[in-house]
Design a protein around this nucleic acid. Structure first.
Lengths: 216, 216, 216, 216
DNA sequence: TATGAATGAGGATTCATTCAT
DNA sequence: TATGAATGAATCCTCATTCAT
C-alpha cells in the first residue's frame, strides 16, 4: 500500500491521475460503512454508489455483483492487519506479559478505533450467508490471530511468567473482550453513557487477565 | 398435547385448526430461528410462516408487520432470563466467587445453549435498523445484566474476596467472553474444529477471571 | 330496537323476531354507505361487516360474494323509487308544468336528500365493472325515469303548454341537473361553500327550464 | 414519428430505448384510460405499464406511487383546458348568448369527445379517497369553470340580453347537462341506443337554456 | 470509463372467501 | 344462525442487474 505501489505505474501521467486506481478503493470504503451500518441485505447498491460518488452502473465495472463487492470488502480490508500483528510479535523482544499488553493495545489502535472495527461485526452478522467467505475469514483472520496470541502465551508459560493453562483457550480469552467491545460499541453507540471509557476497559482487562494468568 | 387429548379428536385432519392460544408463540419461535440464521432483511416471511406451520396471511393476524414480529421476538424471549438471574443472585448465600461462577454457568445453560443465544447476535446485527428496540434491549437486558453482576463484584470487594477494581468494567469483563462466544459460535459453527470444548472455555474463563480479581 | 327486542327472548316469538329478517337490510344499508363513499374495489367487507354490526362470516350467509352484495345494494334500494314516481304521474291532475316541477322536487326529496343519492354515483363509477347490473339499472331506472318524464312533456306539448321539442332529449334535460347535483354534491361536499343552496338550485332550474320550454 | 426518423435507425430493435422525455406523458395517457375505465383501486399498475409499453419498474422512475400517478393524471391533463376556455371568453366579441353557445360547444369538443372526458368521472368516483386532490380539482377546474361562465351570464344580464337570475346558479346550470352527459355517456355507453345523438342533445340544451334565460 | 434508463424477479402486505366450531 | 381463525391469490413496490449511449 505504500509508495511502491504508487510507483508501479510509471507512465508519464503524474500521480494526480489516480482517479482510475482510486475508484475501487473508494467503492470498497463506501460499501464497508454501509454494510456495517445496515447489514448486507439491507444495504442498497444505489446508496453505496452515491456515497462513493459514482452511479450504480459504475459499480459493475469493478465488481461482478453485490456479493463480490461484499467479499472484496472483507478480504481487502482485514488481512493486512493480521500481518502487522504477526510482524510485531516476531520482532518483539520484551517479556510475554508486555507482548500480550502490546498486542491488545495495538489491535484496538488498528482495528477498534478505525473503520476496520466494522468487519468483525459484519462477519458475525452475515456468516451464514457467505459460507465460503466465512471459512476464509476464519482461517485467515480468526485462526491466525489466535495462533499469534497462543504463541505468545506459550512463550510466557515456557519461560515461567504464566501458570499452566489451556493455551488455545487462553488465547481466545485474551481477545474476546476486545471482540465483544468492537461489536457492542457500534451496536449500542447511541445507548451507551457518553462517559464510557474504552481506555479503562482495556486497562482493566489487561490487568485482570495478566493477574489471572500470572504464576503466583 | 397429551395423548388423551390427541385421541379425543376424530382424525379427519381438517385444513386448519383454531389455535389462537398457541399460534403467536409458535410464530415467534420460528421467526427467532430464521432471523438469527439469516438476519432480518434476508428473512422471508413466507419461510417464517412455513416453519411455524401456517400461511403468510396468518402472521398478520398476530403481528402488524415484519418489524413488529421482530420486536416481539426480542422482547418476549429475552426479558424473562434476566429476571431469573436476578432472582438467583438475591437468594444466593455463598461467597461472591461462587456466585460469579454460578451466574456465568447459568447464563450459558439458559442462553448459550438454547435458542435464546441467537438474540444477542440479532441485536448486534440489527441494532442500527431498530433504534427504539435497541434502547429497550440495552436498558432491559444489557444494563440489567451488568448491574446484576456489578452487585456481586461489589459484594466481593466489600467482604475482602476481591481486590479493588472498577466495578462496572469488571462486571462487563466477566460477561464479555460469554457474549462473544454466543455470537461467534453461531457465526463460525461450521468452521470450528469439532473438538472445541465450550465447557473448558467457561472453566478457563472462570479460573482466569477469579484469579485475576482475587485479593492476593 | 327498544324494549320489544329485549322481549324477543321468550320463545312465543311473534313478529319481534325480525332480527333474522333485518340482517340483510342492515348489511345492505351499511354496504351502500361504504360503496358510495369509497367505491366498490376500495370497500373492505370487513368494514361493511363492522358497520352492520356483524362479522365477515355472516355476510356470506346472506350474500354469495362481494359482487352479489353490490348488486343487491343497487337492485333493492333503487327500484321502489321509480314506481313511486310513476304512480305520482298517473294520479296527477294538474298542468304539465306543475307536474314537471312536482317530479323534480319529489326526486330530490326521495333521492337527492336520502342515502339513495349514492346509487347514481355508484353506478356511474362502477358501470364498467358490472355490465349486467348496469344494463338492469339502465333499463329499470334510467329508461323508466326518462320515459316517465317524456310522457309528461309530451302531454304538455299536446295541450299547448310547451313548444315543440325533441321529447326524449327534453326529458333528459329536465333531469340532468339533478343527476349532476346528486353526484357532485357527494364528491365535493367538503369543498363546497357551506352556503350552497340546493333549494335555490332547484328553483332556478325549474324556472329556467319551464321558461325555456314554454310556448311563447 | 415520421418515416424519415424511423428509417434513420438500423433495425436491431434493442430491448429498450432511452425515452426520458416521452415516457411520463405516455404513462399518464395510459393511466388515464385505465383509471377511467376501471377506477383507481381496480386498476393494476401492471396494466398501466403494459399499455404504456414499459414495465412496472419504469413507472416508479417517474412516479413515486400509484397515488402520485393518479394525481399527475388529473393535474396534468385537465388544467390546460380551463385556460383555453378563459382565453376564448376574453377574446370573444359577440353577444353573450353567442358566447354561452360557443363555450358549451367548445367544452364538448375539447373534453366531451376526447380522453379528457374521463377526468370528471374519475374525480367524482375517487374524490373521497383523495381529499387534497379533490380540493385542487374543485378550485382549479370546477370553480374556475363556473366563474368563467358566470362572467358571461353577468355580461348578458347587464347588456339586457338575459333576464335577472342568480348568476352563480345559472352558470352551474349551463354546464350541468354537459357534466352529466360526460359521465353518463361513458358509464352507459354499451346500454344507450346507438342512435343517441349528442349533437342534438347539445342543440336542445342550448335552445332551452337560452330561451329560458332570455329577456322576454 | 461512466452513465442512468429500463428491466423483472422477488417479497411484504391486503383482503375476499372458507370452514370448523 | 353466527363466529373469526386461517387461507392464498393478487398486487404494490423495491432493487440488483443490464445495456444503449
Amino acid at each position: 500500500m505504500g509508495h511502491a505501489v504508487t510507483r508501479s505505474k510509471p507512465k508519464t501521467s503524474p500521480r494526480w491521475h489516480r482517479r482510475k486506481q482510486a475508484r475501487p478503493a473508494e467503492i470498497v470504503a463506501a460499501a464497508l460503512e454501509l454494510f456495517v451500518e445496515r447489514g448486507f441485505a439491507a444495504t442498497k447498491l444505489a446508496d453505496v454508489a452515491r456515497r462513493a460518488g459514482v452511479t450504480k452502473g459504475t459499480l459493475y465495472l469493478y465488481f461482478e455483483s453485490k456479493e463480490a463487492l461484499f467479499k472484496a470488502v472483507v478480504r481487502e480490508t482485514i488481512v493486512p492487519v493480521i500481518a502487522q500483528g504477526e510482524a510485531l510479535a516476531r520482532s518483539f523482544t520484551g517479556s510475554a506479559r508486555e507482548l500480550v499488553e502490546r498486542l491488545v493495545r495495538e489491535y484496538w489502535r488498528l482495528v477498534g478505533e478505525t473503520a476496520l472495527a466494522g468487519i468483525p461485526k459484519l462477519m458475525m452478522a452475515e456468516a451464514a450467508t457467505f459460507p465460503e467467505l466465512t471459512r476464509f475469514y476464519y482461517d485467515e483472520v480468526v485462526t491466525r490471530g489466535h495462533r499469534l496470541m497462543a504463541g505468545v502465551i506459550e512463550r510466557g508459560m515456557k519461560n515461567g511468567e504464566f501458570r499452566p493453562v489451556d493455551v488455545t483457550i487462553a488465547a481466545k480469552l485474551a481477545m474476546s473482550p476486545l471482540m465483544h467491545a468492537v461489536v457492542a460499541r457500534r451496536a449500542f453507540a447511541s445507548c451507551m453513557p457518553e462517559g464510557f471509557n474504552v481506555q479503562k476497559y482495556l486497562d482493566t482487562h489487561i490487568d485482570l487477565y495478566l493477574h489471572g494468568i500470572a504464576k503466583p
